[in-house]
Design a protein around this nucleic acid. Structure first.
Length: 570
RNA sequence: CGGGGCGUGGCGCAGUCUGGUAGCGCACCUGCUUUGGGAGCAGGGAGUCGGAGGUUCGAAUCCUCUCGCCCCGACCA
């Protein structure tokens, strides 16, 4: 491709609304332009990268035995009413009517659509399993779109859905997709982890998120330094303390009320009393659909709502309002404690390790010191706190570290949620009609490209992992007006192109500095510079993006050298 | 949905408080010089100041409404 004819509008400044590096660089490198909040046009360079990701995804999905389809992007409301999600999905579902006043929505995901398709065509266990996937635009009317392609409203996604006659078969496909996803993100050249994720109503171990490690990620994940344990922070388990840890408890220490005027937060109480936060017992009053409960965590820990919800098996969970807190504790917010409480008390395991604790006194400006769990109050102990850096791994003797991650893929065993509500059944070998067991598997295509930039850039611009790079080589004739430079450059351009290598030749009549800056910005892996200086020694200059080293190669060896850098066989 | 902020040429911004007929840098066009890390000089094109209404002799500037965009929050004790 000739740069002079290519639509590649690079920018020195990024628009002020671009916050994170991938967003800024995609705009500056002329890959994307904003159309509306969370909606983008892809320019030629950006589309080439998206196509690279798509190609890897297609090749691996096909290899794994899945088949590509393309479902309609506009979906009739009837399907969503059948599954019950027309009412459940909320405002993220963009709805509208056609000229006949029929209701439709833009597809934010396609479980209904695929289930409808399959239930019409598949009747027998002999036709199962099937894994169907598509790559297309989705629309979710997000509350707060941000970060460019990372979290847009319109975005390109690969979504796959599998249908099975048995649980075992569905689980085998889950494993198959797990391996396929790992291969896909490896081929993309990304540093990622597959982590255990929230499974919602399905439960069990059948949901993994594929996270690209990056500080700007919106998710937190916990990984073990020794074993392969890795989980979303929402789900990550903590180790149950060893029994007998509290042997040295002094039985004679009694509880003692202290005055703590205006001291409500952990920081205030801990510094006022001169007590480590880890000796404080935080008491939180929650309203749930099963009544008001008290929840205890150590002062230096944080409660994990998702884990608490699951442990208590409740649907709604909100911090109690001020009046409720007064009603159950007899004190204003900030002075609740477990001693003497009449409502059910749930505590994190770590609370059990406290032997001389401090809690609220259930009275204004009062706390209690010398509190001992089990002696002074009774509670049910559960794993309900957030994992923190340095915790013991729940699986081995290693310690846990916390990373930020970008969710680029998610695999999920769906079970029969949609097949049951929508009547996607088949006749099994025993002659009985059964709902199909389903799985679904998604990859954010645009987000994967953005994540690659988050992970691979420097102060000058993008450093594409070669498999995702829009071109493999950028060829720079220093002075295109110099006849000899132009001739040699064009010869090399043709030779590389004939060898099947994707080349962008910067044939603009620009100064060298401009070309180098643009080349660094758009981040093509191999740079070849041609000038009268290099030609004088019968050579061209090679450089890899992201490395400082430059070296000369004989003109006639250029193709061979590029092949070896890109690790390609002729 | 709550709070805050911003809409001025393609991009980044000043001007708004204190009303007087729109400016800077980059980008763009022409010419000459220059040509290995975002060149210099000279000339030039381009803006309904987000939109509507109002106040005023006069509005980017003041008032009202409206649209769009961004940030923070939306249970973190």
């Amino acid at each position: 491709m000739r740069y002079s004819r290519y639509l590649l509008p690079t920018l020195k400044d990024a628009p002020s609304d671009a916050e994170i590096v991938s967003h800024r660089l995609m705009i500056r490198a002329g890959m994307i332009r904003k159309v509306a909040s969370g909606i983008y046009n892809l320019l030629p360079l950006g589309l080439r990268v998206i196509r690279k990701v798509e190609r890897i995804v297609r090749e691996e999905m096909d290899r794994a035995g899945a088949q590509e389809v393309l479902l309609s992007f506009v979906l009739p409301s009837e399907l969503w009413k059948e599954s019950g999600r027309w009412d459940e999905y909320g405002k993220e579902l963009l709805r509208f009517r056609d000229r006949h006043k029929r209701e439709f929505c833009l597809g934010p995901t396609h479980e209904e659509a695929i289930t409808d398709l399959v239930r019409r065509e598949v009747r027998s266990y002999r036709e199962l399993p099937k894994n169907l996937y598509q790559i297309q635009a989705k629309f979710r009317d997000e509350i707060r779109p941000r970060f460019g392609l990372m979290r847009g409203r319109e975005f390109i996604m690969k979504d796959a859905y599998s249908f099975h006659a048995s649980d075992e078969c569905a689980e085998r496909e889950y494993e198959n997709m797990y391996r396929t996803y790992s291969r896909i993100f490896e081929r993309c050249g990304l540093n990622f982890r597959a982590v255990e994720a929230e499974t919602g109503p399905i439960g069990g171990k059948f949901s993994h998120e594929f996270m690209v490690l990056a500080d700007t990620g919106e998710d937190s994940i916990a990984t073990c330094r020794r074993c392969t344990y890795a989980a979303n922070i929402e789900r990550a388990e903590t180790r149950r303390p060893h029994p007998g840890k509290r042997e040295g408890v002094k039985k004679d220490t009694g509880i003692k009320e202290v005055s703590t005027p205006g001291m409500k937060t952990v920081e205030e109480v801990s510094s006022f009393l001169g007590v480590e936060p880890s000796r404080l017992i935080k008491t939180l009053i929650y309203s749930t659909d099963r009544g008001t409960v008290a929840v205890l965590v150590r002062g230096d820990h944080e409660l994990n709502d998702a884990k608490l919800k699951r442990a208590l098996d409740v649907k709604d969970l909100t911090l109690a309002d001020e009046q409720t807190i007064r009603d159950v504790t007899g004190a204003p917010v900030g002075f609740a404690g477990p001693v003497g409480l009449k409502i059910p008390i749930y505590a994190d395991y770590s609370v059990l390790e406290i032997e001389d604790g401090v809690t609220g006194g259930n009275r204004l400006d009062t706390h209690i010191m010398g509190v001992q769990p089990e002696r002074d109050f009774r509670a049910q102990y559960l794993d309900i706190r957030k994992v923190v850096e340095g915790d013991m791994c729940p699986r081995c003797e290693g310690r846990v570290e916390i990373h930020r991650g970008i969710e680029v893929g998610h695999i999920f065993k769906l079970g029969t949620k949609y097949s049951e509500s929508m009547g996607a059944t088949f006749l099994d070998s025993d002659g009985r009609e059964k709902p199909m067991i389903m799985g679904c598997y998604g990859i954010g295509i645009g987000r994967t490209a953005a994540a690659a930039i988050e992970q691979n850039h420097d102060a000058s611009g993008i450093i594409w992992p070669p498999p995702l790079a829009p071109f493999e080589v950028e060829l720079i004739p220093i002075n295109i007006r110099d006849k000899e430079t132009e001739r040699v450059s064009m010869d090399i351009y043709r030779a590389l192109t004939d060898a099947g290598i994707e080349v962008l030749i910067d044939d603009r009549d620009e100064r060298a500095g401009v070309k180098f800056k643009d080349a660094d910005l758009i981040g093509i892996p191999v740079r070849i510079t041609v000038s009268n200086r290099t030609i004088a020694s019968g050579s061209v200059e090679m450089k890899r993006r992201g490395e400082e080293r430059k070296w000369l190669v004989k003109i006639e060896d250029t193709v061979r050298e590029v092949r070896s850098i890109l690790n390609r066989t002729p």
